[in-house]
């Protein structure tokens, strides 16, 4: 009995530490007072202000474009890379995986600065450079999601399809692709999350005039904290939460459950 309640208390504490700050943020985003301490009644005005603010809306648009486009392109490149890596010999696979994982393990700030240095040598910083940077750090997440699926997919199923009369293209789309799809999809969602999330790399590669939500929040915070930012942060958190739920209960999770 004591053990049981100790477990409960411990678990509650962990969740409090994890989620209390976010809960406070969400509550404050509905607070009808600029104070961070007093509750001035419920309001949606910060959300309204946020929606009508051209700066925020522009940053929001940029964020959506960057994260969608970079996730899409990274998914395509990452899936192709995974197909290639899977066909390599064991030793080359290890080397290749090590190389592609570097952007993921490297400190964001280092990646950011080194990319900035490279970009300014050849071109002007802007939307394009942010996109390239995001694609770069998204690719390893896609590879890491697709490769295990590829390894589970025996090459014999593809050969069996050929054997039963399928053309190579038909065999790929009917047999190989359905087995890969959950991995590709979760790779895409994870890339999207990472891209939405990123601050450091974006900050260094964006140049003047371009802002994603995270860099915009940072710039605004320096001028003093504004309750619109609470509203915006709440929405960002909800977006990440929804993506996470999709990843865990989406198509790939459903299949695994069905197979049990």
């Amino acid at each position: 009995m004591v053990k049981k309640s100790a477990e409960r208390i411990y678990l509650t504490l962990i969740f409090l530490f994890l989620y209390l700050p976010i809960a406070v943020l969400i509550v404050l985003s509905f607070n009808n007072s600029k104070s961070r301490v007093y509750w001035g009644g419920f309001t949606l005005k910060w959300y309204q202000k946020m929606i009508t603010s051209p700066t925020i809306m522009k940053a929001f648009g940029t964020t959506i474009i960057i994260s969608l486009a970079s996730a899409l392109i990274a998914t395509l490149l990452g899936t192709l890379a995974a197909l290639g890596i899977n066909a390599m010999k064991k030793r080359n696979q290890t080397i290749m995986l090590g190389a592609t994982n570097i952007p993921m393990l490297n400190a964001d700030i280092v990646t950011g600065i080194s990319m900035m240095l490279l970009f300014v040598r050849f071109t002007r910083l802007g939307m394009g450079t942010v996109l390239i940077a995001h694609i770069t750090f998204n690719i390893p997440y896609v590879i890491l999601n697709v490769l295990p699926k590829l390894r589970q997919t025996s090459k014999y199923t593809y050969e069996a399809a050929l054997d039963l009369g399928a053309t190579p293209l038909y065999a790929f789309f009917k047999i190989t692709w359905p087995q890969l799809r959950p991995g590709v999809l979760s790779g895409f969602l994870m890339a999207m999350t990472m891209s939405l999330d990123d601050f450091s790399i974006t900050y260094f590669t964006k140049g003047a005039g371009i802002n994603t939500l995270s860099t915009m929040i940072y710039t605004n915070m320096r001028k003093g904290i504004n309750p619109e930012m609470y509203a915006l942060s709440t929405i960002l958190f909800m977006a990440a939460l929804i993506l996470l739920l999709l990843m865990n209960f989406g198509p790939s999770a459903k299949r695994e459950k069905a197979s049990k």
Partner: peptide, 8 residues
């Protein structure tokens, strides 16, 4: 095939 290679 050796490992059956059924379509899962």
């Amino acid at each position: 095939f050796q490992r059956y290679a059924l379509f899962p």
